[in-house]
Every structure is written in structure tokens, then in C-alpha cells.
């Protein structure tokens, strides 16, 4: 494609300058400042001179912080695995189904995308909280208090899975619809069992989108502050500790270090998954800049919004 001549832009680069300035001043500069804050100690709300790694050391030494770091990572990995296991077969069926079913499912999947993270956390309280609907049902059936899982790892995981579902299905469904159905039929006619076809034919072809979906899922779960805050009576996760260090400890340095750890984990999981996906995808990739079609796919990398 020939490059458009300069004058068909709107004043060329000039009109892009405000946005570039915005990104430099309000995105890159604050993030750099965050890193600088994280290598300084905060005493009585004031940054002390002298570089130190004590804030990062605290994440390893402090039992509470180490616990929430472990919880955060394990929870995100677990949620990613569960969501992929649940959504991959669903996305495959969806890709082979007619427009009516596909539109209906689209309508259903809009909900987890549209609701803010705090509302999704609240959904878990409505069902699994002390007076939750499921808790009340369990109590009515067994005669004892039960089902109050909202503030456990399971409750938090349920909320995370909820907002990961549309992201994973959105990421997988476009790729699943391009799968060649003949390959499955050939494998089946050669006597492969359905499970074997899935493991040896379908899943290898979906490796790249599966990895991409996993990256999005991980990054979203790692940064899910609103959801965790709503369910904050229970487990500690890292985003909660950031707010806690700042507002209850007045410790900007520690809060910054925790944010940097969180951001690195999220960026790392996205980058690793993207790189892995590219590696698998290379032979099949024809148009690298081709966007993934569909709103759900476009909104799929909704990393930071929970």
C-alpha cells in the first residue's frame, strides 16, 4: 500500500501533538515517577533522599504482603485456567452456530463487560454472602448456615471468572470460526475419538488465541481492584494493599513499589502470552495489522478496567 502523501493528513503530525503531549506528560511521566517513588523510603509522608530497595524487599519479607502477592498470582492463574476450560468449548460451539444464537450470546456477554468491577463483586455477595440467595437456599436445605463463600478465595475467583468470560470468548471466537471443520471430520473418520480430535487437532490450532486470551485474563485479574475492594472483608490481594499502604499507612514508597510489582506482573503476562502467540501464529499469519473483528473481540483486551 503506498503511503498517503503528507497533505492528506489534517496538518500531518501537528494535530497529533496534543495527544502525544498528553501521553508523555500524563502517562509516561507519572509512571516514571511511580518507579522513582518506589525506590525511595517515605517517612511521615515525606520522601527521603537516598535510593533503596527496601520497599521491594518488604514485599518478600513482610508475611502479609508476601501472602497477598502469592494469593494474587495463584488466584489469577487459577481463574485463567478455569475460564479457559469453561469458555473454549463454548467458543467452539458458538463459532459453528448460526447468527441467531450468536447474537443472543452476544447480548448475554455484554453484561459482564458493561458492569463495573465493584458491581461484579457485589453479585457474589448477593448470591454467596451472609444473606445471599445461595446461602439461604443451602441453609433451607441443610438446616445449618452454609454457602457463605463470598469472602473466600472461591468467592473472589467466581467474580474474576465472571468478568473474564466475555474477554476469553471474544478472543477465541474469531479464531475458532476460521478453523477448518474438514480437519476434524478427517480425524474422526480415521477413527479418532472426539476427545482425541480435540486434543490433537482443535487445541493445537487454537494455541495462539488461547495464549492471547490467557494473557488478557491474567492482566485483568491481577489489577482487579474494584472487585476485590467490594469483597475486601476476606482475602487480601495486592491491589488492596496498594490502597492500604497509601491511605492507612501514608506510605507512598511502599504503595508505589506494590503498584510497580503489580504492573510488571500484568505487563509481563501480557507480553509473554503475546510473544508465545506470535511464535505459534507465525506460519499462519498473513496480515499482521488486521484487527480482530467484532466488538467483543475489540473490547477483549480490557485489561485495566476492573
Amino acid at each position: 500500500m503506498p503511503l498517503a502523501p503528507r497533505r492528506t493528513g489534517w496538518g500531518g503530525l501537528l494535530v497529533a501533538l496534543p495527544a502525544l503531549a498528553l501521553l508523555a506528560w500524563f502517562l509516561l511521566r507519572p509512571l516514571a515517577g511511580l518507579v522513582v517513588d518506589s525506590v525511595h523510603l517515605t517517612r511521615l509522608g515525606v520522601r527521603t533522599p537516598g535510593l533503596t530497595l527496601d520497599n521491594y524487599r518488604a514485599v518478600v519479607i513482610d508475611a502479609g504482603l508476601r501472602g497477598s502477592l502469592t494469593t494474587t498470582v495463584l488466584l489469577s492463574v487459577g481463574v485463567t485456567v478455569v475460564t479457559l476450560v469453561l469458555c473454549t468449548p463454548a467458543a467452539l460451539v458458538l463459532a459453528r452456530s448460526g447468527p441467531r444464537l450468536s447474537a443472543a450470546v452476544d447480548a448475554v456477554l455484554v453484561f459482564p463487560l458493561a458492569f463495573p468491577g465493584i458491581v461484579i463483586g457485589f453479585f457474589v455477595i448477593v448470591l454467596l454472602g451472609r444473606n445471599g440467595l445461595v446461602s439461604q437456599t443451602v441453609e433451607a436445605l441443610t438446616g445449618e448456615p452454609g454457602g457463605r463463600w463470598a469472602y473466600t478465595a472461591g468467592g473472589l475467583a467466581a467474580a474474576y471468572v465472571y468478568f473474564c468470560i466475555p474477554r476469553v470468548i471474544g478472543a477465541l471466537r474469531g479464531a475458532a470460526s476460521t478453523l477448518d471443520g474438514e480437519l476434524r471430520n478427517v480425524a474422526a473418520s480415521l477413527g479418532a475419538s472426539p476427545a482425541r480430535v480435540a486434543v490433537t487437532v482443535t487445541l493445537p490450532l487454537l494455541r495462539a488465541p488461547l495464549l492471547a486470551a490467557a494473557g488478557v485474563c491474567m492482566a485483568t485479574s491481577l489489577g482487579a481492584y474494584g472487585t476485590a475492594a467490594t469483597l475486601s472483608e476476606g482475602l487480601r490481594v495486592l491491589p488492596l494493599d496498594v490502597a492500604d499502604a497509601l491511605y492507612n499507612g501514608g506510605d507512598q514508597g511502599l504503595a508505589a513499589a506494590l503498584s510497580v510489582v503489580l504492573a510488571l506482573l500484568a505487563v509481563l503476562s501480557l507480553v509473554l502470552c503475546t510473544l508465545g502467540a506470535r511464535l505459534f501464529d507465525r506460519p499462519a499469519r498473513r496480515r499482521p495489522h488486521e484487527p480482530v473483528p467484532g466488538l467483543l473481540a475489540a473490547a477483549a483486551p480490557t485489561g485495566a478496567v476492573r
Binding site: L27, P30, L31, L34, A219, L222, G223, Y225, P239, V242, A243, S259, V260, L262, A263, A266, V267, L270, P301, T302, G303, A304, V305, R306
Partner: peptide
Amino acid sequence: PLAVPGVAL
């Protein structure tokens, strides 16, 4: 802004 959690930003 997608990759960096909102809390950090």
C-alpha cells in the same frame, strides 16, 4: 493503560 492496572496508574 490496558496493561498497567488502574490502581498503579
